[in-house]
Design a protein around this nucleic acid. Sequence first.
DNA 1: CGACACCTTGAAGAGGTTCAAGAAATGTGG
DNA 2: CCACATTTCTTGAACCTCTTCAAGGTGTCG
Lengths: 242, 242
Amino acid sequence: MPTPKTLKVPCSGCTLCEMCIPMEFSTEEIEKLDELVTTRCKVKRSAALYSSGDAFTGLYVIRTGFFKTCLVMEDGRTQVTGFQMAGEVLGLDGIVNSHHSCDAVALEDAEVCLLPFDRIEELGREIPALQHHVHRLLSREIVREHGIMLLLGSMSAKERLATFLLNLVERLHTRGFSKSELILRMTRAEIGSYLGLKLETVSRTFSRFVREGIVEVHQRHLRIRNPDGLRYIVNSPADDEL
Amino acid sequence: MPTPKTLKVPCSGCTLCEMCIPMEFSTEEIEKLDELVTTRCKVKRSAALYSSGDAFTGLYVIRTGFFKTCLVMEDGRTQVTGFQMAGEVLGLDGIVNSHHSCDAVALEDAEVCLLPFDRIEELGREIPALQHHVHRLLSREIVREHGIMLLLGSMSAKERLATFLLNLVERLHTRGFSKSELILRMTRAEIGSYLGLKLETVSRTFSRFVREGIVEVHQRHLRIRNPDGLRYIVNSPADDEL
DNA sequence: CGACACCTTGAAGAGGTTCAAGAAATGTGG
DNA sequence: CCACATTTCTTGAACCTCTTCAAGGTGTCG
């Protein structure tokens, strides 16, 4: 369970963009938006921000840290449905039934802002730009998941992992990190679950990429040597071997 | 391309529930909602209601007919991302970028209502219940897709097909159709694409279900003889053979 | 330093795919 | 309304990718 802190955080100063300050607001509106964020929480590594069944209170914007969301079946099988990093939003699944339908777990110590959803709706009625922003946020998530369905439904292991790495490094890059180096915050098993593969297959596919000179892998430290190699893999249905 | 008809349709009389009239509205509000639906379109079998790249104008509520939505990769591979029937909503993918990111194709002659999205947002600001309804609609789609990720990521062919059939028959049942008989509106290849399987695998799995006495299959006419058999398959990770 | 979690790699195996052929249904045009 | 073309569905056999099982290596943290 997260540690709630009723700490006033001026959003106006926060550089995170996905949710909070999508620019096209007047200063008056920004003042209102600052009111939106009432609570900041710290979440320890491997702790759940929320779990399936928990009452839905609002959306969480990640300030720092890295999360995974996952579903757990009765028989214990789990499916990782996404990895989220700073600036991204958690909790959209809870809106329909006022209860969460998946778990959000921190993969490293994290800090999130809670945006009570009824406040979001209230403000959305006053600020059309915010309203539309929320709609886009939800729609973006739908489109993202379409992409994952494509990945899970029609891609080989190589393609899946290549797609995953490209997506990850791109998102990190927009946050100011390197285009070629990254640290995986998740285990092979978690990557595998997300990609519909077993951890051994993930490991083997990494090894293969290393052999082909596409990446360097040292545990969780990755270095992409040939990004075009990855892109080529994604776009080649029948991938000719070396 | 659909055939637009500027036909006034009183939504108040329409029994479709998912989008249009979620009860908790005043008569005054319902009058406003009636204004929402400006256009009704007919879509011929195998015609696209919209295609990837088309400008997004609004959401479509299916009055009659049956649709599939699908993504097409550059290399031609396609992924069916969903099947939609009367009362369900199409077009949510278009909100983010004001352009659609997938194709919606009618699997039989269909009729849809267009709800211009800017009007939805306007009205949403006036009617909180509508606003919340839209949010739930989007969130529901996200949760639905989580379920498909689980299916594609961690289920066997048998489990996938059983899950698919149970879901389909349940949705039909809420629309007043039989709990045990249904007509598949889509081909084996389309089912396969949706489930991340090849059409041969779908066909073989059907045959297997028939052999086990779980269903009767005559082309696209299905009869579920043992729904618990299907449910059992879904909930048994290592499924013991006959 | 030892315990534990995580990662890699090999060998055998299974589930699903691919290729191919034929049967059944559907639609079209004469 | 029938014959033909086309699409869709089923089934078999060989193959391949990914999984499973197993063992050993590496890194980390108390």
